[in-house]
Design a protein around this nucleic acid. Structure first.
Lengths: 310, 310
DNA sequence: GTTCTAGTTTAGATAATCTAAACTAGATGC
DNA sequence: GCATCTAGTTTAGATTATCTAAACTAGAAC
């Protein structure tokens, strides 16, 4: 079976739906002559008369009624298809998943800057420690840490963070620190990530950095999430080696202080991954550009000042 | 919303279904270059990437998967539409309705000639005294009598029949008829059609034709169907003014005889009506031609011979 | 009877669609 | 590692489909 020409079917469908050649032509944006020729061609191809010409009117034959009933569904579906795509593109917001700490202490705070720039662009931020499957639409963008980014097709370095010892001013009390090593005499809060992430810098490494001895068995408090460790420090429970990007608000608010600004870098970088299709969502490209922009600035702020001890 | 070009949608649909540009091109009967350009044009029109080019492979993006799922249904429906039409044309036989007597005593007998000519062409013959609605597919062809044909869009004169007095040879027995008027002394079977048909010739008219007196109140046997009256005559119940076309088999078989071949014409003709679409069914035109052909011959046989008394 | 309008047909203009050729890039085999 | 093959892309221009313009038919309206 040979399929007749698509334009011929389309012309006939329009005639059936509109009732006259002239109104069908108007709807298709062509002349009645074009419609007439297309329908004639369809009749020749199929070997049946679809329209009965009665003076200056046309009327469907029973073959025409039969065929039109079916192809109308087909063309309606094609039109619907394009609408479905348009709706999906315009209505679906952007979905970003990130490590929970990154959501709690970084991107979740920065997103208000995005809102100011693009008030009508919805972005949904989800804390999720496992890598999402982008192609399945689980996420448009993903912020992750280290080599885990390689499971995604498209990714780029976001920023590299540094850690610095920080504590609540209440913890210090009336104590006066004479040297960086004095920090090690206070309760120390430890961070231990899941095994598939490179181990974050530990107090033992910091002690070695400042030329001090350090007990191999610290206070016994361990946190899986950096953000939880930071919150404990804010509550006066000890010193934390906090990521610079995650404690900026606390430093500004005075709920954390840095007695000695001696920083260590994280062993790996944060990465932004994305689904190609997401770049074609409304504001998709803009969001990508914005995240890269704030990350670049963060890299500058997180790194120690050029004259700092490294 | 502007619909993208149909050929572009079709090319993309084929790629999605076939998996590669090359196999899609083969199926569409074009070059891969054509498919590549069509898909590119579709992407430009819609403003999204539908296929991700990975080296020499292509892979659907999530937009592409979404759109393809929908348009595949549309194109499948269009293909199905043409199949539906083809099936309807090839599988549906021809339907002829006719007056019951015509079915019983004429066309129902002649149809075997059609079968010999076209063994694989199904024709269904239905006795029906009311006019069918052709456009609704109630009938492809219709044999009717007189002005009733005018309710149809397409119709033509079929044949004009004549009546002749006929009886079973058993009725005559040892009686010897000396003159045509002697017939009137036998039991006479009457035919009275429904009021919307012109009254068929009556015995009183025949009597007048042969110059004989005739009682205004004959035997009291009246038949609504000509075929029933003929059957009664075959059974020896009396003389019938039988239509020539309907008693030919009986004359040939000797179950009826015509002592005096003095004929009277029916006041109106038989007509063939038809639905335009029926001519496009397989064998539709052939059937029309055949019916007209046997009718023409019937007209010749039904009319009295050129030297007969009229 | 004249004018208007829907539809058709024909000729040829226009645009869409296609092929050919040259190219890129990855896969395969030696 | 290199040559060959194959899938896909791009560009230029050939081909075909589709369209418009013009002339026409035929019926409706005034």
């Amino acid at each position: 079976m040979t399929m007749p020409p698509l334009h011929a079917l389309q012309a006939f469908e329009a005639v059936g739906r509109c009732g006259t050649m002239t109104t069908a032509a108007k709807e298709l944006g062509v002349t009645p002559s074009a419609v007439s020729q297309q329908v004639r061609k369809l009749e020749e191809c199929l070997g049946v008369t679809l329209l009965e010409r009665i003076g200056r009117r046309v009327e469907m034959t029973s073959w025409g009624v039969l065929l039109h009933k079916e192809i109308a569904v087909g063309f309606a579906q094609l039109t619907h298809s394009v609408e479905v795509l348009e709706r999906a593109r315009s209505q679906s917001g952007i979905v970003l998943t990130a490590l929970s700490s990154v959501v709690n202490k970084w991107i979740g705070r920065k997103i208000f800057e995005w809102k100011v720039l693009h008030p009508d662009a919805n972005v949904r931020i989800i804390g999720k420690d496992e890598e999402p499957r982008m192609a399945d639409g689980q996420s448009d963008f993903r912020i992750t840490y280290g080599k885990r980014a390689e499971v995604h097709t498209h990714f780029t370095v976001l920023y590299t963070d540094w850690v610095v010892p920080a504590c609540s001013p209440r913890l210090l009390g009336m104590h006066k620190l004479n040297a960086p090593a004095d920090i090690l005499t206070f309760p120390l809060l430890n961070i231990e990530w899941e095994s598939h992430y490179s181990r974050p810098p530990q107090w033992s490494e910091w002690a070695q950095l400042v030329g001090a001895a350090c007990n191999d068995k610290p206070s016994g408090l361990f946190f899986a999430l950096s953000s939880n460790a930071i919150d404990a420090a804010v509550n006066g429970h000890g010193f934390v080696l906090g990521q610079v990007s995650m404690i900026e608000d606390e430093l500004n608010a005075g709920t954390l202080v840095v007695p000695y600004d001696i920083r260590m870098p994280l062993p790996e970088s944060y990465y932004l991954a994305w689904d190609r299709a997401a770049l074609e969502k409304p504001y998709g490209k803009e969001f990508h550009t914005w995240v890269m922009s704030i990350a670049k600035k963060q890299s500058v702020r997180s790194a120690p000042k050029s004259n700092s001890v490294v």
